[in-house]
Design a protein around this nucleic acid. Structure first.
Lengths: 198, 198, 198, 198
DNA sequence: GATGAATGAGCTTTCATTCAT
DNA sequence: TATGAATGAAAGCTCATTCAT
């Protein structure tokens, strides 16, 4: 056996980081950030407390890393059309993407929302939230303008709130919330084919 | 000097209870339940820690009392139509009531939502939530049926999610969220006046 | 109704003192001195905490008063023969008296023994204990000498320990400890009629 | 540096546990369970409060561990003759063993008796007490029967009470109680040598 | 890199005692 | 005399973080 290469070590480090972050995310989302102890995370991840501090400077930095990673993943959706306008025919794809993200990262969203509701921790996500909401609003604004809305600003805000509400309700009751039906309904209601804005 | 009468004691007790609950609600909502210490509450309320425990058995019971009181106030909205159906012409009144409640109890809703997102504390509100959502859904279901909706169940869920999303966004950014405009828009969109029901 | 006389007030004060002391004794003996709160005592006695402090300067003084009163009652047994010698024919009477006291003041003895075992509170009873044991030992010593014992000192100590052990066991399991039979047995064993020391 | 081996940790843990238990036993016995604070124990043991909780879940569990360990040690005396009968010639050995235990574990016995006298804490030792008294009584019963006693049950109870009383008096005044002489006297009185059994 | 024993600041909670009425 | 609201010191306990190995 030859000693591990620099890259292998790097790989191991990266995998452990991900392990810790995923473990912590689950616990944070389930019991809340304050109710989760470093011991619990270390135990569930199968490592020692000391090692955890080898990867993350503090509990708060760990949380920050988790939130940033989650936000990065979410923000990728907006990349394709980053500086463009959402054409009406793209709306269906967009809604699908959003729902896919929400369903895939349910646990992250729960944590994210809980944190958002806590002003004293909110600073950790405040900046990233702007990165999310600003392009989102621009996209929607452009879309509704394009679709000939009488009040595109109002339409955008309401659509945005509706998505937030759906996400919230889905997170709170994932087992009984009919997320697939809701998605279809949204597509049906908001994806205007051709020029027939009702 | 003779001791205070029972009524005087009752008065004192009631006022202090309210003072403590209001103070705690604000702090809980602002910094989160776990991040708020009994010391902070006592200090802000201008009383000693010991006295607080004279009124509430524990920090958790204090939270429970706050949540229950808030839920009681919110549930009063449903009283007028408790076992009836929401007639189409009543929808405007109903939306107005909901928005009034949300605006008036902004702080409570923030706490309430934060708690709901934390499964381990969720048990405190679980039962009360059912008291809120069940009649709400029935009311909406009846309303949309009455209004001739093709899919009243879907309409009810979406309307409900929309309200949740609006509440959430308003709570997170009360200063910039155009709550009044949104309310008008909702009334405009969802209040079907008798003659126009097809 | 004429105002109460000075004596009547004094009478009321005395009765209330006794009420508080008896209530406290029971609680102290049942749950221990440290585990009993002033609130509990006041509540069980049907008075306010403030009033209790009107009668007793502190919790410790209350305990002291209880212990002293109990000791006084116990010490009365020794009065009849205080400076005399226990004649052999008086032993039966004496044992009867001791058992009567133990049975009557079971609760007091429990407290008294518990306190004795706690050096830091022991100072409260230390002096009174000497008042009890010293004459007791003298009495026994005289008795066994009188009865022609080969080692009256040893006999006295052992007899004393036996009484202590009986008291302890009776206190710990009053329902199953055959106190009456034991008493008869003691009388049978230690009351030497005439000169037939076995 | 590589981390300590499992054995090293085990060693450390065991030694600390013993240190804490011995320190706590002494303080509990001296000042009483309720009057002893965790801080005092930690300080006297030369460790932090936090560490103590690393080893014992709570103050009560610490007490329980102490009582159980003490009882285990005491119960070992009964092992040799566990299911047998105490032959008359073994009585001397048995009395010697009992006195040895009492003298060696004086501090434990003080705590044990104090706890026994406090019904609300009694549950901690209730079960263990039965383990002690039941075989003790059986042994004594067998012994006195064997020795031709007219009332072996009474003899057993009285002998038991005598031992309890001696233990109590010795604990209360170890410096002046003539425990060695008493032991000899007991052996003299209760060890019936085969030939002299009438 | 990896361990978990060890720390200590800070939390919730209790309760003897005081005091305005 | 009598009340119970109010205090505050001190208790038990938790947990993020450190560090010797």
């Amino acid at each position: 056996m030859s000693p591990r290469t620099e890259e292998q070590y790097e790989e191991i480090r990266h995998e452990k980081r991900v392990l810790i972050m995923n473990t912590a995310l689950e616990l944070f989302a389930m019991h809340g950030y304050e109710n989760t102890t470093i011991s619990q995370i270390a135990k569930k991840a199968g490592i020692s407390k000391g090692l955890l501090y080898n990867y993350f400077e503090s509990k708060e930095y760990l949380l920050e890393a988790i939130l940033n990673k989650g936000m990065d993943e979410v923000l990728e959706i907006f990349d394709p059309n980053k500086d463009g306008v959402l054409e009406t025919y793209e709306m269906e794809f967009f809604i699908n993407e959003i729902f896919k993200t929400v369903e895939k990262n349910r646990v992250f969203w729960r944590l994210y929302m809980a944190i958002s509701l806590q002003p004293s921790v909110f600073k950790l996500v405040e900046k990233r939230i702007e990165e999310l909401y600003e392009p989102m609003m621009q996209l929607m604004l452009g879309y509704f303008k394009n679709a000939g809305s009488a009040n595109p600003f109002m339409d955008a805000i309401i659509f945005n709130s509706l998505l937030d509400g759906i996400t919230l309700d889905y997170i709170l009751k994932p087992d009984i919330f009919p997320i697939e039906d809701i998605k279809k309904e949204l597509i049906h209601r908001f994806c205007i084919h051709k020029k027939t804005v009702s």
